[in-house]
Design a protein around this nucleic acid. Sequence first.
DNA 1: TTGAAATATTGAACAATGTTCATTTATTTT
DNA 2: AAAATAAATGAACATTGTTCAATATTTCAA
Lengths: 205, 205
Amino acid sequence: MSTAERKTKEKEELRALILKGAKKLFIERGIEQTTIRNIADEINYSVGTVYVYFKDKNSILHELHTLGFKQLGGEMRVLFSVSEPMERLAAIGRVYIRFAVDNPDMYDLMFNMKAPMEYLHRIEKEEWNEGKATFNVLKTTVEECIRQGYFIGHQPEPLSFAIWGGVHGMCSLYIRGRIRAVNLGDPEIVLIAAHEEFVKLLNKQ
Amino acid sequence: MSTAERKTKEKEELRALILKGAKKLFIERGIEQTTIRNIADEINYSVGTVYVYFKDKNSILHELHTLGFKQLGGEMRVLFSVSEPMERLAAIGRVYIRFAVDNPDMYDLMFNMKAPMEYLHRIEKEEWNEGKATFNVLKTTVEECIRQGYFIGHQPEPLSFAIWGGVHGMCSLYIRGRIRAVNLGDPEIVLIAAHEEFVKLLNKQ
DNA sequence: TTGAAATATTGAACAATGTTCATTTATTTT
DNA sequence: AAAATAAATGAACATTGTTCAATATTTCAA
């Protein structure tokens, strides 16, 4: 291995180390409470080094958001074994909700925070590939349902968006503390019960 | 009017002036870009004065959030003239979405931001009256629908929550730039079209 | 009217944050 | 070993929210 190759590898490793440290802190104490100094401390490097490997905080957050989508994508992939599309549609929602409950800060970063979108804007990229890919999993399933005779009179794309919005909204209200605040009982149970009602609505002919 | 009375009134006026300035800036340049110093400048008082009238930034944001709910409540109240509950249900959604599109930062503050919830936590108040009242408008309508024979087999409270979540989710994805990012066309049009699909789902027997 | 007490307002100062960049340290090449 | 290149550093800056001793203003009894 040439020196140049080794150097490239070392750089990638340090980059990955920074991300690993960032993710650790950010699961431990939340994204808002994680500073660049914390991250630098965590991995025993200086603040300056972090800025050699990432242009700014948004870059780090965007990269973590991408890792989150990889994880969610993996959890969704399993569902392609569910052959009945209506059943799969419900299962996608359950996986999505489970992900939100188990990884609230990551979910928040992926679907609520401005950082990843601001990053895309800065690098002048209009495409949000991570989001589009996830949306397509849903849309493909909805289209299959339509082919089987469900959702008659609906337009697939807006309908898919409405379904995404539906599940996302419940998760967001959960994560942003609105379920707790309206006092309907244990938030996680309310969330899951609401999703069941939502699935009932979807299943009506 | 006694001196004490006048003083009380003056205090209330300055308090209101601070809120007015805060709201102005915050509509003009967004909530994240509005600092306490900006607010103080805007109304020609010092930073310190703002802190005499409000304990911290969360208090200001909470009070603005309450004003937002007053406005939304007013816009909803008109809908009690719609006698058909299923029709009213759709109309509530449209009003809610219109509010979100016309007042994105206010909507964000009311339903997404942590500040108002943190304020409640600080003053050790468990009740989120603003949210509960708005939720009850929805729940009452859903219950009426059920009494008319709609939503058979559904539980009213989780169903109401699912409907809230549904509309909120679409608004949130809109406000947090996720609709634009998935590139389905003009975001506002997508939002409205998705709500129409949502209403179709609700209207199924 | 006056002056002491009460009230209201001020803005400098603090800690925490993201960010920059001249300097230092380490590594590679000659 | 020296020179050239690359990597890492951390002090310094601007901007936040926040505090609080100091200053200015207002009140009201004498």
